[in-house]
Simulated scan of single mutants.
Amino acid sequence: MRARLANPLPAADTAAADAARARQASLTKPPGSLGILEDLAVFMAAWQGRARPRIARAQALIFAGNHGICARGVNPFPQAVTAQMVANFRTGGAAINQLCRAFDAQLSVVALELERPTGDFTTGPAMTEAEVLEAMAQGAAAVDPGADVLLLGEMGIGNSTVAAALARGLFGGHATDWAGPGTGADAEGVSLKARVIEEGIALHRPDPRDGLGLLAAFGGREQAAICGAVLAARQARVPVILDGFICTAAAAVLHPFEGALAHCLAGHCSAEPGHRRLLDALGLRPVLALDMRLGEGSGAAVALGVLRAALSVHDGMATFEEAGVSGG
């Protein structure tokens, strides 16, 4: 990761963004009246490099991994559920399958050594640096460089604890600021998560500027894969829609590298308590806030529907001149 980020990352196309803003100003509506839809069209223009962006191919990726921290009882479900849900994704039975069908995204699932969970981060590093880099490489390899937009999601029993640990390591505070119910932990379970995270912080004393070190200390393979996918998408100038708290916390590991997440949209603000705090820390404005907390890319997929709407009006509306309407 350090080597990849040592080189300048592709920048947004400011000329295309300016052209998209000029088109917005010429459309038959009061300036700014479509709110965030206008901003989304300009964002997509900047990363696609064209004034009238399109989505012919939307790729959705779910990365799945298992976590040694589950040995501490931080999740009420057994880790076998991760593989069971991967099978459900692959046979089309999950929520994300229906949402991808509804909003026309092609879904792929990448399971990352589910039979070999990461280490318990309260007793040592979750992964070696080599394991982090291998997971990142798998995430990068899964990205279609010809996609017009990439949706990212995850699955992994125990990974809300990992996400909270990453957020705590990056942005400080106390683990109680970041730990939430995840898949359904009660108040006692959330308190346990926070105590476990603080144990890990005390053991590893993470440097918030060292994303690779954070992933090695706390991360799951799916979190590392998400980072690899975000970087590969940036190299291909593919805009990214992040899902909820877990996905955003994984991508946040890249935040210390200035501008590394500039091509990313926050699909939604989830009901997981730490997500709003994390979005604020990253300066990301969510497209939606629907009290979702499912994960698996579901919020990103619904946001894709809004993004498609934004591009449809941007491309299809008549200009004042075309419509013969005064005021343009």
Rank of each mutant, 00 (worst) to 15 (best):
A105M: 10
P78C: 12
F43V: 03
W47H: 15
L133F: 08
N75A: 15
V132W: 03
R57F: 05
F77S: 01
A141F: 12
C70P: 06
L107E: 07
A95H: 07
R90P: 02
T82S: 07
G139Y: 10
I69G: 01
P145E: 15
T123V: 13
D39K: 11
D104N: 11
Q84H: 14
E131A: 15
G93V: 06
F43R: 10
T122K: 00
A140Q: 09
C100S: 05
L34N: 00
I96N: 06
D120H: 05
A41E: 10
F121P: 11
L107I: 08
T91M: 14
L99G: 02
I69L: 00
E131V: 04
A71H: 13
A46S: 15
A94V: 04
A60D: 04
L40Y: 07
Q106V: 11
A126P: 01
G124E: 13
A56E: 15
G92N: 11
C100K: 02
Q98P: 00
P76S: 03
G139D: 12
T82L: 10
V143Q: 11
A102H: 13
L107N: 07
E134C: 04
R52T: 15
A102G: 05
A58T: 07
A56S: 10
P53S: 09
M127D: 06
N66C: 07
L114H: 01
Q79G: 00
V74M: 01
N75Y: 00
F121L: 09
D144L: 08
F103I: 11
R116T: 14
V42C: 04
V132P: 03
E115M: 03
